[in-house]
Design a protein around this nucleic acid. Structure first.
Lengths: 334, 334
DNA sequence: CCTTATCCATAAATGTTTTCATGGTATTCC
DNA sequence: GGAATACCATGAAAACATTTATGGATAAGG
């Protein structure tokens, strides 16, 4: 069943059928009605590939993310997909892992699949070593690229991010204000965003006249989805490192910290304050519930899709938008 | 840059270029080398839409799921995407929510987008009211459909599922063997799979000579991602309902139960045993860690993709495969 | 009667895959 | 050794199903 069959049965040309299908003008109400009736009767739908060939688009957006099983990324993907779908776009999901070669490979694959644009979800697509970002610049020559939670200056690249520096600084300050000064910073990522958070922690201490201590900035090298491993990591730390609060770079790490405290018999928040980051489902699974930073994921996703739709409609759009995080006070802080 | 440009520069016909590109036979080594050199030099990649039109396929699989932010479904999507990608397929993700009309709409949309097949992730796509499953039968006339965690007999529909009845029965029996007989069953879904689990619970009781009590089978009507709400639900139950164990239909519900116990000051597992289902990340986030049923998600996903690849290569494949779950004993049971 | 607006049809363009025909080379059989 | 056969590499052309530019026809208005 093709557009020819429809045109024949309706007694019009295929151009007219096409116009009816695409809601273009220059079709009389009568003709439109007649054609629509035939389309309905035949249960005809246009061939998507031929349409794609003619329009050079299939209304498809690529979503690149390192690991869609990660709580945070999964949520981002969910919100983006939802919003795209409401705007009549579908998305091809492609998980790259954290290897640079795979990121290149799959970004290229999406470009070659002729998606209208690619949204790169997560700060890990931008390297601190700028040479490694050339693959982004290359792809941006072909189609617009949107970065969620990353900051990158480049023609045809648009960024939506949360001010992780400020948010972490505020969260850390919140602990300091409660009277606790020896705060362990626990992090898992050295991405641009990861390092910005670390700076926020340092800045909060410095502003409050607290000297920085290297042994209080601990990098957890494992997988942050392995919660017991996080607790074990903290247990294995030098017993001489004393602290009464943990500022964690994400909720997973914070939950690991809580597990550690529970095993050690520490009372939260009296013996140990804990703050997480992301406001994920994990932050409500413990008792007391986790104080955390809401980094406005939903707003970011909403904004990034709005930007994308704008770009695809040839509207001028802001290349960078920065949201502010919000501290959600729950039970793990004083 | 089209196949014509390549053919011209290489001094061959477009048919030969196409043959080289697709690894088809009947091309001399010399010609192949020459053509490949030109392709390389021009950085040529075939137009995906034209290719799709010619082959009536773009190597794309649709993934339908109700809610990809759900821990369990997100994991399923992750494993499936991973495995498909390794087999040179990409996937279009489409979240439907739990409304029947939307499920129909988006399944149709994927079919019209000309995906090679659709994988429906989660038992909620099959209704207990069989008339409501007609949209599945309709779509199956067009392309093969694969169901993860659902059981449905229909030509061109293939199912991979876990024996939820048996698994729940075994888990419940495990509690009974520990000496606890008053077990609350907490569930959130009345899908086919949800009801199978409930039957498993009932069967375990019956087999052990324990009378069924309706008030011990509690349906939680809210969103199982709202953990505090689950705890509140349990708190709101009639205080006269006495029980010393909770068998939950998924880990979220179990974590809610643990929160409830912690608030009430109950000791786990001494005062209250808890078993979850799915072996998700939530099962390791609490202290003690949650005893749960591993329903072989990874194996199911692996199998479903293998089946799909087989079907697309016209190999005869089993229409239904049932895996057995495994009880993971952790700290919330005696 | 001319102009303009409205509407529609023909044809070109999109870029592949694949069938069929052809010419040439190698193999086999007598 | 020559004819028949098979096979292989190649190219021309058809098929895939749309969108859209161009221009022609008809009706309405001045």
């Amino acid at each position: 069943m093709t557009i020819y069959d429809i045109s024949e049965k309706a007694g019009v040309s295929i151009a007219t059928v096409s116009r009816v299908l695409n809601g273009a003008g220059n079709v009389s109400a009568e003709t439109r009605k007649k054609v629509l009736a035939v389309i309905e009767a035949c249960d005809y739908t246009p061939n998507a590939f031929a349409r794609g060939l003619g329009l050079n688009s299939m209304n498809t957006i690529g979503i690149l993310c390192a690991d869609s099983s990660d709580l945070y990324l999964a949520n981002a993907v969910y919100h983006i997909e939802q919003e795209l779908r409401e705007n009549n776009y579908n998305c091809i999901l492609c998980c790259t892992g954290y290897n640079l070669e795979d990121k290149k490979k799959y970004l290229n694959l999406l470009v070659n699949k002729k998606v209208d644009s690619v949204i790169l979800v997560g700060s890990n697509f931008i390297s601190n070593d700028d040479k490694e970002n050339d693959y982004i610049r290359e792809a941006a020559k072909e189609i617009p690229l949107l970065l969620l939670n990353a900051d990158f200056d480049c023609e045809n690249v648009y960024c939506s991010l949360c001010d992780d520096f400020k948010s972490t600084m505020q969260a850390t300050s919140h602990i300091i204000k409660s009277g606790v000064k020896d705060i362990l910073y626990l992090y898992n990522s050295k991405s641009y965003s990861g390092l910005r958070k670390l700076s926020g922690y340092q800045s909060a201490l410095t502003q409050n006249g607290i000297p920085l201590r290297m042994e209080l900035m601990q990098y957890f090298p494992g997988n942050h989805a392995d919660l017991p491993a996080i607790a074990d990591f903290l247990s294995s730390l030098d017993q001489n490192i004393k602290y009464h609060a943990i500022m964690a770079a994400d909720d997973n790490l914070a939950i690991g910290a809580i597990k550690f405290a529970q095993k050690k018999g520490l009372s939260i928040p009296d013996d140990l304050s804990v703050i997480g980051y992301n406001n994920s489902i994990l932050s409500t699974c413990c008792e007391p519930e986790l104080t955390t930073v809401d980094n406005r994921l939903e707003a970011l996703c909403h904004h990034i899709v709005r930007t994308l739709i704008g770009i695809l409609n040839n509207t001028e759009m802001a290349q960078k938008v920065i949201f502010s995080g919000e501290l959600i006070e729950r039970g793990t802080t004083l």
